[in-house]
Design a protein around this nucleic acid. Structure first.
Lengths: 140, 140
DNA sequence: GTAACTGCAAACGCTTTGCACTCCC
DNA sequence: GGGAGTGCAAAGCGTTTGCAGTTAC
């Protein structure tokens, strides 16, 4: 998704295009590690010194409504933002919180089987695997 | 898991057996809808009028450490407690938050394939499907 | 008897809200 | 020019913490 596509998506949905929104949207799309609101804030503050956490949260809600990102609530109460809306598995280090995505064709087949078995119209899904990453293993 | 087993598990791990702990543990095991801490509090208050939310939280942490329950953080920031530690799918109404579990044999096979593909030692997992339940559909 | 547990209240951290100012269109 | 968006600070809410009193063992 390039700048132009983002701008068009905003305009189509009658949201104004602002520097902050563009920056937040581009940032989250460029990251594969599902950052938290505060991580986004800390990094964008460098280039946009007056940006506020409130704006980050409002924009993230907007991006979720537009279907660009997915919120992921975790057990310690933290919320992370995932720009991958396709069926995938979040591989999560339960120690440091690092996340990467895993895609497997076989998941798709199984998933459609389950859906038809359940007889529901799914609105979304979330699949996590928790493990301890190599960095954390070394540290202990 | 009956009373005696719970008591033994507590003692084995050198935790004292109190009326509150037993009540919380039995309550959560008996429920299939993954209640929140406050729901547990509201219901137990009837039989244990002096029980406090602090005790609920402390006990839930303890039960998680003992491996009896699993915490599930959701997108709106809420945390729900799931007493089913086996591989299963949480079927979640994204409107009212109702949850029920779905177990399928075929998930297990796929899961072990994915694990060996990833080459990791999983510590746990979580699989959610979001949909709108019949009650909520009617209401709209 | 004593260390662990409970209940209460205060503290905490993340998220949301309200409002005056600003800026996109 | 006008209304949506921003930034700031305050409020909100679920969870955690600290501590004096209580209870299991």
């Amino acid at each position: 998704m390039d700048d132009q596509e983002i701008i068009e998506l905003f305009r189509e949905n009658e949201f104004k295009v602002t520097a902050q929104r563009l920056a937040i949207c581009k940032f989250i799309i460029s990251r594969e590690d599902h950052p938290s609101a505060d991580q986004i804030y800390q990094e964008l503050k460098i280039d946009y010194p007056t940006i506020s956490l409130g704006t980050i949260y409002k924009t993230l809600d907007l991006l979720e409504k537009l279907g660009i990102i997915q919120k992921l609530g975790f057990n310690e109460g933290s919320i992370r933002y995932d720009p991958d809306m396709e069926l995938h598995i979040n591989v999560v280090c339960s120690n440091c919180g690092k996340i990467y995505d895993y895609k497997a064709e076989n998941v798709k087949k199984l998933w459609s089987d389950i859906i038809s078995d359940l007889g529901i119209k799914p609105k979304g899904q979330r699949i996590d695997i928790y493990y301890e990453c190599d960095d954390c293993k070394e540290r202990n």
